[in-house]
Design a protein around this nucleic acid. Structure first.
Length: 853
RNA sequence: GGGAAUGUAGCUCAGUUGGUUAGAGCGUCACAUUGACAUUGAGAAGGUCAGAGGUUCGACUCCUCUCAUUCCCACCA
């Protein structure tokens, strides 16, 4: 009775059913306090890239969660004070755009007008809260071991306070300014967007070449004739002989705008004399480039298109109120009538569209808030761009090629427009003194007050705009640690250790985190960044709702287990590269998890009184020695790969060891040998009791649930999550160059020989007397042309004589000679770094060993 | 226009210091089986490692060029 009770405690069910254990295990981990950083080890923090509340987690998030969690579990087990801090992002424009789209689809033609600010915000807030709670439960489901006590949200009270503090600091230092500049305007979204929020799409357009008037000497080419109603200059290259005579002159032309246009001919090197007519009609109000020319040359600025995408009064009575396309047709018709149109041709051109609202962006001059990136910081003599560049050198980016991209982005960076005309987000903490009941936001910056609340109860009006969502995301690495307060967390964990993100938000997010962190804390936000690729479907397409190819992670985890899903995503995924997701892989890794389960099950059946062995036991057979040696190598490799965040290689190695080395080889051989070797069963048991627990530890970062579930049957003590990372036991100096393949071949050969020689399966072989073993040994030696010895101390040694072909042998001999001559060269040994010389020596030794020397 | 990545078995992908016979999963074909596991085991077929040239004793790996695919940045007004 008591026996069966004990055995039932240890016995595992026949198959691993993930869904039956996962939830319970997560709760146990959380209750144990393992998720919170503890101990006195080196601090190691990872800030979770906060998923947007625009939706719920998709398969791409699972990859990200798996990367972070694997890393943090590993570091935690190594004794670091590990913190993975969870959170979510309000995703200002994206969320509002999403909700508005739904509302419009539900019949509310103009949600902003219909509901008003407060009501619409409430609708968005509910939507966000719903997604947020779904996402948080998804994160739990994925096994992410994050510290929930530090949960953050970009729009919560603490993060909002950080935003206000940062805004104020930057304003006081002169980095945030309010300026009248040309910005990207989405007519559909009725909001600005930053340069990075544009998506360029290629489309056909017509280039019209025309003259402003019959006597105007310079022909102009344009794809947007309607904007020409607002031209204030014509720019040519300073060296262009055709037009040099006109530079400095001002022409008056009447093209039908409200007032005749005064066109100044200016010279600027930005103009390409070889392109088009070699002259540019400068429309400062509706082109970024032209706006820069305007600033440089002090030109006039005439807005002819308004926020509604329609022509303004400035465009003249003939055009005012028309949408741009209509105005274009009308203007071209007029040009034709006046015989000013020289030619029309079709070209393909890239136009900027809003990534959230989808419409073509208008460049409009507006009064907005900006972050100055080219201005020197008082006392530091550097611009924000400089800081970002310098920080780039201190941060390790994996893969390295993204660093180049980052620098390229900095070089092209213009002042960052941070104000948005949507309502969802951090409202700009700027107050204007109310002067009368018909108050309008003033153009001047006098009487501004910056804080989350006005200085007095009455008489102040807050700026209606909100901040670009990346402003708050940029603070993420430190706002989550309590900044601006000088918290212990900030002192302990900053700069954070590691961060992962997709390459598509490199500029949006990474760059801005670096900017904000360098500016506010004079520190890099993180030491290492791991850039992951995008997961695509089996046809190589992006997952998207419109393509209806999205996969619910929940369905996959229920079907195959979270561990299988995590492993499938990590194994075979390399940093920075996209990868295709296919379900077969998940299924395969489910099989793997089950295999591990059954290995453990078998081991427990063989060893009913299983006790964890900590010290590497003494091997007594070749198989023992081999498996110990192999495990030692595997563990060292895996540890190294995890340190360097090379997850795929670590996972693959563990996979191979578990399935091939341990299950297919060692345990299979053990089955045979256990029938032969009576007195060594204890030694074999000890090896399994040593390796299996270590293997579970090493696998835990990848497959936390299954490893923990099995661990529960091996040990009645601590949870696996809190165990120490194993250290490879000392193995004897192992000579020889057997690979797994070689050993496997030998084993197969032995099996064959045994059956040919009719050595009964159950014949007992006693190692100590050596008698039957001699036969065994002889068989191996004759088959593999090797000598086999078992040493007393630690490991058995198999000294394989290489079975090289003559041609290969010759090749190697030449190779050896080449290294020898290289080493004999004094120039080389003197000038080359020591590591290189040592490497050459090692190569030589290896090559010699291969030849059996 | 500038830059980057990718091209390895039918499919999805590994392969970091250049070195023995280029790997895995899935798929295909045939074989085995009764107590860990059919979510199994042992095996086979399938590759001019995109192409050409170069460096080297030796190149999937390094260099150059070409082709194909994809992406990023800038933008022509």
């Amino acid at each position: 009775m008591s026996n069966s009770r004990i055995s039932s405690k240890k016995e595992l069910p026949k198959a691993y059913i993930a869904s039956e254990v996962e939830d319970e295990l997560y709760v146990r981990w959380e209750k144990s306090g393992a998720f919170a950083p503890h101990g006195t080890g080196e601090p190691y923090a990872i800030m979770m890239p906060p998923p947007n509340v625009t939706g719920i987690l998709h398969i791409g998030h699972v990859l990200e969660q798996a990367l972070m969690d694997t890393k943090i579990r590993f570091e935690r087990m190594r004794g670091k004070r590990a913190l993975l801090l969870p959170g979510t992002d309000h995703a200002a424009v994206a969320t509002q755009a999403r909700v508005e789209k739904d509302l419009i689809a539900a019949g509310h033609a103009n949600p902003r007008k219909e509901f008003g600010r407060d009501k619409l915000l409430e609708i968005i807030r509910k939507y966000a809260e719903k997604n947020k709670s779904t996402m948080l439960s998804q994160i739990r489901m994925l096994g992410t071991s994050c510290d929930w006590s530090r949960l953050a949200y970009t729009l919560d009270e603490k993060r909002s306070a950080a935003v206000v503090t940062m805004f104020k600091k930057m304003y006081d230092d002169g980095f945030i300014y309010r300026g009248y500049r040309v910005v990207n305007w989405s007519v559909v979204g009725q909001s600005t967007c930053s340069d990075d929020e544009l998506v360029h799409i290629e489309r056909k357009a017509t280039v019209y070449t025309f003259k402003y008037s019959k006597d105007f000497p310079i022909p102009i080419a344009t794809t947007r004739p309607e904007t020409k109603l607002g031209d204030t200059a014509v720019a040519v290259h300073p060296d262009d002989k055709r037009y040099k005579q006109y530079v400095g002159n001002t022409f008056t032309v009447d093209v039908g705008a409200a007032k005749p246009l005064l066109l100044k001919v200016i010279a600027d090197k930005a103009v390409d004399p070889k392109f088009g007519t070699g002259a540019v009609g400068v429309t400062p109000a509706h082109s970024m480039i032209d706006f820069e020319l305007q600033e440089k040359h002090g030109l006039e600025l005439i807005p002819v298109i308004g926020k509604d995408g329609k022509m303004t009064a400035e465009a003249g009575t003939a055009y005012a109120g028309l949408i741009a396309v209509e105005a274009r047709e009308k203007f071209v018709a007029w040009l034709k009538k006046e015989k000013l149109l020289i030619k029309e041709e079709e070209i393909s051109q890239n136009v900027a569209t809003s990534d959230r609202f989808g419409d073509v962006i208008e460049a409009l001059p507006m009064r907005q808030w900006f972050v100055a990136v080219q201005k020197e910081i008082p006392g530091r003599g550097k611009t924000l761009k400089d800081l970002m560049r310098e920080a780039g050198e201190k941060i390790e980016i994996q893969p390295e090629r993204y660093k180049k991209l980052y620098y390229q982005w900095i070089d092209n960076l213009r002042d960052w427009c941070i104000s948005r005309q949507v309502w969802w987000g951090h409202r700009i903490p700027v107050w204007y003194r109310e002067t009368n009941s018909k108050f309008q936001i003033p153009n001047s910056n006098a009487d501004l007050y910056i804080d989350s609340n006005p200085p007095e109860n009455n008489g102040w009006v807050q700026d209606p705009d909100t901040l670009d969502t990346w402003f708050s995301s940029g603070l993420w690495t430190f706002s989550t640690l309590g900044w601006p307060e000088k918290t212990d967390d900030l002192k302990t964990f900053y700069p954070t250790a590691w961060m992962t993100m997709g390459y598509e938000i490199l500029f949006f997010w990474m760059a801005r985190m670096i900017l904000m962190s360098e500016y506010a804390l004079k520190e890099i936000p993180f030491k290492q960044v791991y850039i992951h690729g995008i997961l695509r479907d089996s046809e190589g397409k992006k997952f998207s709702k419109s393509l209806r190819n999205t996969i619910d992670p929940l369905v996959l985890t229920k079907k195959y287990g979270t561990d299988a899903l995590r492993l499938a995503l990590l194994a075979g995924n390399t940093p920075g590269n996209d990868s295709s997701f296919n379900e077969e892989r998940v299924q395969h890794y489910q099989h793997f998890v089950n295999k591990l389960w059954n290995i453990s099950r078998y081991v427990l059946m063989q060893i009913p009184d299983f006790k964890i062995v900590l010290k590497a036991p003494k091997p007594s057979t070749i198989a023992d020695g081999w498996v110990l040696q192999q495990w030692s190598k595997t563990l060292a490799y895996v540890t190294n790969k995890l340190e360097r965040a090379e997850f795929s290689q670590a996972a693959t190695m563990l996979y191979t060891f578990t399935w091939e080395d341990l299950a297919d080889w060692y345990i299979e051989v053990a089955k045979i040998e256990s029938r032969q070797i009576i007195q060594e069963k204890k030694a074999k048991d000890a090896i399994l009791q040593y390796i299996l627990p270590q293997l579970l530890k090493a696998l835990h970062p990848f497959i936390p649930f299954a490893s923990e579930a099995i661990w529960g049957s091996l040990s009645s003590g601590e949870l696996l999550i809190s165990e120490q990372w194993p250290v490879a036991g000392k193995v004897g100096d192992v000579k020889g160059h057997d690979t797994f393949e070689e050993i496997k071949k030998k084993t197969t050969a032995i099996r064959q020989m045994r059956s040919e020689m009719k050595i009964p399966q159950h014949q007992k072989i006693d190692v100590k007397t050596g008698l039957p073993f001699v036969q065994y040994k002889a068989v191996v030696e004759s088959l593999t042309n090797s000598t086999m010895t078992i040493t007393d101390d630690v490991m058995p040694v198999v000294e394989a004589v290489s079975t090289l072909t003559d041609s290969k042998r010759k090749e190697l001999e030449v190779y050896i000679k080449s290294i020898e001559s290289k080493l004999a060269n004094k120039e080389f040994t003197k000038k080359a770094p020591k590591s290189v010389v040592d490497a050459e020596k090692k190569k030589l030794a290896d090559a010699r060993a291969k030849l059996g020397r």
